[in-house]
Structures are given as C-alpha cells and as structure tokens.
C-alpha cells in the first residue's frame, strides 16, 4: 500500500553566514495511513524541521515529500494551504495559542479555512473543548489558563477539524505526569479512531508504549527504526 506521506532524500539546510546547518540531511521516511509513528531524537536532531516539511509549512532544500504519491513541492501555495486546512492537525512544541483570542476562538480558528459554516464552527469547537474538560474555560484567554489547560486547548484546535493526520510536537513536554498521561491517552484513542499520528518526543517510554513504529533521529539523519510498542508491529 502506498504510504500516506513519504519523504525521499529530504534535506533542509540553513545557511547562517559561513556556516551551513544541516537541520535535515537525506531523510527518507514513510508514514502509513492510520499509523501511530513516533519520532525520537535528542534536541536539535531535526524533528520539528521534519514535521514542518511534512505539513507543507516549509520547503525542502532538496528531496521530496509526497502526499499519497503526489509531491508537495509540485503544489501551489493555495493547494498547500488547502492541504493544511483540511487534512493536517498540528500541535506545536510550545502551545502557540493566539494570546488575544479566547480558548474558544483559538479552536474555532482551525475551522476558518476549510469552509465550515460559522455556527458549526462554534458548535464543534465548544463540544471539543467540553470533551477535554474545558467547558468552563472557553472564554478565557491563554494567559489565564494553566499549562495543561493550554495544551488541551492546543490539542482541541489540532483535532477539531477531524484531520487525516496529526503532527504532535512534544505535546506532553511541559506537562506533569497526569496531564501527560491524559494527552497521550487522547492521542491513542484518536488514532484508534483512524487518525494517523506522528508524535515527536524525547520520551522513550512514551514512544514504546503508544507508537506502532519509532523512527530515531540524530543530527538531521534517521539512525534507525523500531517496530515496537504496546500494540506492536507496523501496518
């Protein structure tokens, strides 16, 4: 079966004066539909860079990213926007909530660009926040929410549009054990519902526990792949 997303010899270099930073160097990975993939690597290994390229937010220095066989590099800006608007959910390493929007408005923003009617946007966003236990926090601004609450708003924003693929960049990085567990559980249940998940983490145990497959990265390169995890085995 054709992978949902596939990179071939993907490179992303940053030029900083005389130096060239190889944030990604010749990375070839595939993400299958319905898969729960973990990206494991130390800080600076290029995990976030890879996610941005997979989401079509960044353009590679060389190599290709293909979405169900068609290269993202061949798409127009508008097509890339539509891809993100309809198919991609993203949870950022830092919450990246819009500070002057309320929790509800932050979630609603995810539905602005995929043609959802305003009333439905409000309804779906409120329902999503409610299901994450934030029913009485909807009109709060991010600054008035705890870290865990902010992260849950970020999760709600990422999944409210019912994306095909979720990129989660260390969603539990700043959270305590209980909050981490609940987010991890949420991702797992979404995956069980058919959502493809790409999870970035430093956390071995978490990768082991939830992912079908773990890709290990170092210095912008893929250093190994483990078929592991609770449910075991790749699709």
């Amino acid at each position: 079966m054709e992978p949902y997303l596939q990179t071939v010899s993907l490179c992303r270099y940053y030029r900083r004066g005389p130096h060239e930073v190889k944030a990604l160097d010749n990375v070839s990975v595939a993400v299958n539909k319905g898969e729960y993939l973990a990206l494991l690597g130390s800080s600076g290994s290029g995990k976030t860079t890879l996610l941005n390229l997979l989401a079509g937010l960044d353009t590679p220095t060389s190599g290709t990213v293909a979405l169900e066989g068609s290269p993202l590099t061949g798409m127009s800006r508008r097509e890339l926007s539509a891809y993100r608007a309809r198919k991609v959910g993203m949870i950022f390493q830092s919450f990246n909530l819009i500070s002057h929007y309320t929790a509800l408005q932050n979630v609603e923003a995810a539905l602005l660009f995929n043609g959802t009617p305003p009333a439905e946007r409000r309804r779906a966003s409120a329902a999503m926040l409610e299901s994450l236990g934030l029913a009485d926090r909807m009109t709060h601004r991010p600054g008035d929410l705890s870290g865990g609450e902010q992260q849950r708003v970020a999760v709600a924003r990422a999944v409210v549009k019912r994306p095909e693929i979720l990129f989660a960049d260390e969603p539990t990085g700043n959270l305590d054990y209980d909050n981490s567990r609940s987010i991890a559980g949420l991702l797992q249940s979404l995956n069980a519902g058919g959502l493809t998940v790409v999870l970035v983490t430093h956390n071995h145990e978490m990768a082991q526990e939830y992912a079908h497959r773990t890709v290990r990265m170092q210095y912008g390169r893929v250093t190994g792949t483990d078929l592991a995890g609770a449910t075991g085995g790749a699709l």
Partner: peptide, 16 residues
C-alpha cells in the same frame, strides 16, 4: 507574527 504563523499553519492562504 505568531498569530499569522498560526493562521497559516491552520490553512490560511497568503491571500487570506
């Protein structure tokens, strides 16, 4: 800048 980045990540086009 952050708002613009977030909106773009959510699928906003340059024209939006």
């Amino acid at each position: 800048r952050r708002e613009i980045g977030v909106l773009k990540s959510l699928g906003a086009d340059e024209s939006d």
